[in-house]
Amino acid sequence: MVSVESYANAREAAAALTPTARYLGGGTLLMRAVNYGDQSFDRLVRSPDPALRMIQREGDGVVIGAGVRMVDVINHADTAFLSAAARGVGGPAVRNAATVGGNLLAPHPYGDFATALLAMEASVHMADGTAHPVEAFLAARDSMPGLITHVRVPVSQASRLLFMKVSRVKPKGVSLLSIAASVPRGGSRLSGVRLAFGAMGPTPLRAKAAEAALEGANLDEAGLAPALSVVNEGLAPADDALASAWYRREVAPVYLKRMLLEARGW
């Protein structure tokens, strides 16, 4: 049997977390585990702390509370650049529940929003005051204790976020893969591109070999070719019910090329 506890703020809630307790955010993953009798935890911890649900500009970035829902990201002006990624999560009812913090912990093949955060080089902030780059957080998330309070996403006028979700069922389906890329605005030469893939490994992963190959490349077929040939380096797709690893590797460069070429002239 599972008990439920509520704490006034995130710090107290974090203190109540033990190996057999889980923090309940939107519930889209955790209530499913409760319903299906997951034996790995027997306590749910909640908090109505309003700080967990805030979105605000802060210097050259935007701070998004871990309890902010996908629908909030879509509707808030300061997070408009992330709305395509937030829209990629579930159907409307799921987006009314699913949270930013939860998406960072969502196992494969979920985590489309976390993929966008990874391409944006966001940082993950914990209740104990520590902060981790998203990439480091994702790599260590299975063993990392504590409670996420917010993420901080750097915002630059010089770049923009491209996002593409590939699924068999449209408009809502689980990802075969998702791609997020932070690319420079204007001009035809690429630089500082940050490229992240969802559902191409146990967590969202950066495609750093392709990023390097895109440095200084022209945004056209010939310019992209070297990056497309190395796009799978660093990715670790798995077979699942939706697609085989082989298929995912085959189509990853196809969709990346499509997404980048469609972004020309923006």
Binding site: M1, V2, V34, Y36, G37, Q39
Partner: peptide
């Protein structure tokens, strides 16, 4: 249902 699931486990 949950008690049944716990017992099955």
């Amino acid at each position: 249902e949950r008690a049944a699931r716990d017992a099955v486990a």
